[in-house]
Design a protein around this nucleic acid. Structure first.
Ligand SMILES: Nc1ccn([C@H]2C[C@H](O)[C@@H](COP(=O)(O)OP(=O)(O)OP(=O)(O)O)O2)c(=O)n1
Ligand SMILES: Nc1ccn([C@H]2C[C@H](O)[C@@H](COP(=O)(O)OP(=O)(O)OP(=O)(O)O)O2)c(=O)n1
Ligand SMILES: Nc1ccn([C@H]2C[C@H](O)[C@@H](COP(=O)(O)OP(=O)(O)OP(=O)(O)O)O2)c(=O)n1
Ligand SMILES: Nc1ccn([C@H]2C[C@H](O)[C@@H](COP(=O)(O)OP(=O)(O)OP(=O)(O)O)O2)c(=O)n1
Ligand SMILES: [Mg+2]
Ligand SMILES: [Mg+2]
Ligand SMILES: [Mg+2]
Ligand SMILES: [Mg+2]
Lengths: 533, 533
DNA sequence: TGGGGTCCT
DNA sequence: AGGACCC
DNA sequence: TGGGGTCCT
DNA sequence: AGGACCC
């Protein structure tokens, strides 16, 4: 017993402060549960969710039969031939349920911090103190760590115990709401810091919650024992620790700082030491929107660069949906691939580029316009080419596309000296967004291309974006040969890439009857006009 | 003439939009002028400002005698033996004048974007339209590019010309204020975009301003001619361009996209093309505080690691001053060195680490406490060691220390899974800052160390930070041997590093008369208590 | 070849 | 952490 | 060995 | 751009 000793009244003085009430929520066998909610006939069967060769999770029926997370499909079917496998390669449904959970939790606090799709930390300190009366209960909801009776637990002098108990009541209420309103069972951990709450939540899974009090802290860490269970300690840290003979939490607690100093800087050493004692003074972060939106797709190996476009297009179409749902305009694009390098090793690589929001013509929904899609696809291919350039043989087994630097409003204009920063303007606040492409049939009005090409680009795009595929294809044909603007040298014009011609035609403003003597100047003028969109 | 041709009324239709009025301000021979203001006897002499072996700038008297920027001292004295050289290695005075300029400019717009110490872009569009009447003048202030008469200039159909002329009036007013209130002469460029304004400002230097109208754009770019003068085109880009035979702005304007495609991605190619035509739709960024504060110091080579601490301390003391003036607390620390590597090449390298704001005990001014300084110095040494580790021989010729991630308020608490992120909490808003250490004598009250060590850490630091060096030294002596807290194993206690003992003693709370049987548990308890600060 | 900074990858 | 850019 | 994300360097 | 971490 290394926790502070109780005084004569049985009250302890804690080492760590604990004025907060932190709940960690974790959805039970998340992907599997979602699939069961979507198809209730699965409820009494062993269900696994697979991604290619991997069973990423399974319901608890399956787990009883030996299925574990990220188990190879082969082994899984071996262990449990009756296992019903659902394909979960497209995570869109899980993303949607995750969003519902987080929204609900935000009713209780601004401090809702997501971790992956199915976990959330919530700092309910304020809610608990402001709803103290309605959360008062004589019974502690859920389980207490170590199955203790509350009476047998050392009380804390700071009075946090009662707050934590109210936190448990609240956790129960929230979990019931999640079940009633969203249909998912969850676990929760209730304590005074994020680390402890996270360690507690799976303690009595599934569909349960666990609370703990400060006096139980050493017992918890001793119980957990496994270093890898401590969030923040991953493979690399684990290996380093074992290189100085530290393999358990207890060993870490007792280890010499001088040992840790050999492999970590001082700050890291102290942080690890703290974690081993269950000490964590990090705050639950305020809720923030996600900073990137991406889709990855493992494929059967492709062996020619020419096959990339098709594969990228599939991925792009998937990520486009998410982008449109999100509504923000991305200004950064990253392509990832997995491939065999010239040494025969399978490796991952990625290239990134800034993109201008102008690509989306004011509304990210325009990504479904064939021309916009094509432009982005070209950028993806450019990025891919950068990676495959030095390759002797192309052997790609995965494509990923991720959009980042998502900005709330359309902001035109590249940055000046920071050429790659094509939009980042802190606090920028101009421009209207065009309306989303709706599913309602828009109309069959004939699009007069002449009129159209005279509209300012924004308006034109707004018009175009309200018409559907057939029209859009027609619009694409617009940008062909016969429509070389009359102030352009047809030779020059034809030599320009499609994406440029497209922009050009949509911006050529006047007949321009001027006579220009020099061909060079004519070319200059043409380019200049194009560049001005 | 590739600008749009005027129609029958002599009115042009522009390629680029230009609803903005952008002024670029650039202080004349900045460092030199500051030195002359500080020592007016220099006013009629050739003055150079040197940093080690380099004359970084000089006044215009010196320039007439052949002195140029970043000229080797030897060459400079050769060209102009009468040159008065002022040491400008400590840039603190220039930083202060720079701050004054930017503050003044902010009276006119939120969009004030610094570039280096002596340049500012200001978007005065709003100011000009809101003060249209008072800015109306019959004369154009300063020079017009190409010495044109305004009457001979093609007018723009969008009516921007009158706005720009008002912008020139405003620029003149501002420059006069800068001279009267701060004492410095400046140049300014007035146009409709940042690129053009920046290209214009030095056109009639020193102490003058230049305006231009859209119809003059091609003349400007033709006049500039030198690619390197275009901001955004640096060494690397220049080399790439010349690899495809492009060496002038005109050549870039006319070059084939396909040539550029060989060396740049499409977006870069288009951006460069735009720049060559003087097109720039970037916005002047909203004013923001600087994101890092650093000091560098070139030294005569040191050849032993043991010499690093002394050198780093000198640099740290300099950067500390700036940090205290700034007031924000840094949460990231970077050390740079220049050294000879094992191949004999002189290279630069840097290491970075997150630091907790707790290091500063609630107020960055505490960096002048010897213990705080010592702690940071230790971190600097740790970072330096990481770089010198693989070196056969130490041969360091420069040390730099830079603080980043400056946060407005003291926010305790490391981040959870992102262990290196020791504070970043978007929107965090707790905690009070202790007051700055003032230069007024604080008092001579005796500091009862017993009382002091019982105070919560924050309060203690607040008290300490109001006392001066003599007292502070005394406080440091506190943290020595005799004061091993009575609940600590003296052996264990002594084995702890100073920085830990220091924190420990300041947080030991109770006599703790408990009897603990096991030595290991005693140790555990000791460490635990320490970790909780 | 000083001594500052910025942003992107 | 390094690169490219700016002063 | 899927398919998402975060932050630091 | 790559690494380490999380789910
Ligand atoms: N390496 C991983 C870990 C998790 N997941 C997905 C599948 C899980 O369903 C979901 C949530 O992760 P959990 O660790 O919380 O696992 P479960 O929710 O599936 O099970 P549990 O009931 O143990 O929480 O994230 C994944 O795709 N890959
Ligand atoms: N924003 C915070 C601050 C603290 N804690 C938790 C984590 C720790 O277990 C405990 C004590 O942390 P500190 O020592 O940082 O306590 P403070 O008194 O500084 O916290 P606060 O920010 O509430 O004043 O509180 C938290 O969850 N959220
Ligand atoms: N490579 C450089 C460039 C500039 N500076 C410093 C010295 C200058 O005084 C100041 C401003 O840079 P400018 O290019 O504006 O040069 P000056 O202001 O000195 O001269 P000018 O009158 O030409 O603007 O920045 C520097 O230290 N190192
Ligand atoms: N915030 C802005 C936007 C534009 N411009 C300048 C740069 C260009 O020379 C000119 C035209 O740029 P755009 O084509 O982006 O013009 P917009 O009409 O979109 O600008 P605004 O943001 O004012 O609507 O205006 C600027 O200085 N600051
Ligand atoms: Mg989970
Ligand atoms: Mg889960
Ligand atoms: Mg300058
Ligand atoms: Mg200058």
């Amino acid at each position: 017993m290394i926790s502070p000793e109780p005084d004569e009244l049985g009250i302890i003085t804690p080492d760590e402060k604990h004025g907060h009430v932190i709940i960690h929520f974790d959805i039970d066998c998340f992907y599997a549960q979602v699939e069961i909610v979507r198809n209730p006939t699965l409820v009494d069967k062993p269900v696994g969710v697979k991604q290619r060769t991997l069973v990423v999770t399974s319901n608890y029926i399956a787990r009883e039969r030996g299925i574990y997370k990220c188990m190879p499909v082969i082994d899984a079917l071996n262990a449990c031939p009756e296992l019903v496998l659902i394909n979960g390669e497209d995570v869109a449904p899980y993303r949607e349920y995750a969003e519902k959970i987080t929204s609900l939790l935000r009713e209780y606090s601004d401090r809702v911090e997501k971790l992956g799709f199915d976990e959330n930390f919530v700092d309910v300190t304020e809610y608990v103190s402001q709803n103290s009366d309605s959360l008062t209960a004589k019974e502690i909801q859920g389980r207490i760590f170590q199955e203790k009776n509350y009476e047998d637990i050392q009380k804390c002098e700071c009075g946090c115990d009662q707050l934590l108990i109210k936190g448990a009541t609240l956790a129960k209420t929230i979990r019931e709401r999640i079940y009633k309103e969203i249909g998912l069972t969850t676990c929760a951990g209730v304590s005074w810091n994020k680390l402890v709450s996270k360690l507690l939540s799976p303690m009595h899974k599934p569909n349960n919650q666990t609370i703990m009090f400060p006096s139980q802290l050493d017992s918890l860490m001793y119980f957990i024992s496994d270093l890898k269970k401590i969030p923040g300690i991953g493979r690399s840290t684990l290996d380093k620790l074992s290189s100085v003979g530290v393999t358990t939490i207890a060993e870490l607690q007792l280890c010499n700082l001088t040992d840790l100093d050999r492999i970590f800087d001082r700050a890291t050493a102290l942080r690890l030491l703290k974690l081993s004692y269950g000490i964590d003074d990090s705050s639950v972060k305020f809720f923030e929107k996600n900073k990137s939106i991406g889709v990855e797709d493992s494929i059967k190996p492709i062996t020619a660069f020419s096959q990339c476009k098709e594969k990228l297009k599939i991925v792009l179409k998937r990520v486009s949906k998410l982008l449109i749902e999100d509504g923000r305009v991305p200004t950064s694009l990253k392509v990832s691939i997995r491939y065999k390098n010239n040494s025969g090793d399978t490796v991952r690589d990625s290239r990134q580029t800034a993109i201008t929001s102008a690509l989306f013509r004011g509304n990210v929904a325009n990504i479904c316009l064939p021309e916009v899609e094509e432009n982005i696809l070209k950028k993806c291919l450019e990025l891919t080419k950068k990676m495959t350039q030095p390759l002797k043989h192309i052997f790609i087994t995965l494509f990923g596309i991720s959009f980042g630097k998502l900005i709330e409003k359309k902001v035109l204009g590249n940055s000046f000296f920071f050429p790659k920063n094509l939009e980042r303007v802190v606090g920028e606040s101009s421009c209207s967004q065009t309306s989303r492409i709706s599913d309602e049939d828009p109309s069959d009005v004939y699009l007069d291309e002449t009129v159209l090409s005279e509209l300012p680009l924004d308006l034109k795009n707004e018009v175009l974006s309200s018409y559907k595929s057939p029209k859009l294809v027609k619009c694409q044909n617009e940008f062909e040969t016969q429509d070389c603007p009359n102030n352009w040298d047809p030779e020059v014009y034809k030599s320009l890439p499609v994406e440029i011609r497209e922009e050009l035609i949509s911006t050529s403003k006047r007949p321009a009857g001027e006579t220009l003597v020099q061909k060079q100047q004519k070319r200059q003028k043409s380019i200049l006009e194009f560049l001005c969109k």
